[in-house]
Nucleic acid binder design. Structure first.
Length: 85
DNA sequence: CCTGAGCGT
């Protein structure tokens, strides 16, 4: 039970924080959670994250409008997240 | 220092 609609965010700058990402994605809807994915062994960011919205239409809008958008000098890859199997 | 495709502790 994730409680929201997750969006995959690839090609994120390594120095970006969850707060920055959340602020950026809040332009398209109500962000309820941001999770940067870290390498479990080295602890370094893996360069992508998941942004969770409270509603699906905001998630879909973020995908449509923020995929390819410039964020701190990087072109973001935004897509609907897969289900965790 | 620490990179560059990636769907997650």
């Amino acid at each position: 039970m994730s409680g929201g609609y997750s969006v995959y965010v690839g090609n994120a700058p390594f120095q970006s924080t969850e707060q920055e990402i959340g602020d950026f994605f809040s332009q398209k809807g109500n962000v309820t959670n941001v999770r940067i994915v870290y390498d479990r062994e080295t602890g370094r960011p893996r360069g992508f994250a998941f942004v969770e919205y409270s509603d699906e239409q905001s998630a879909q809008r973020a995908v449509n409008e923020l995929n390819g958008a410039d964020f701190n000098g990087r072109q973001l890859r935004v897509n609907l997240a897969n289900n965790r199997s």
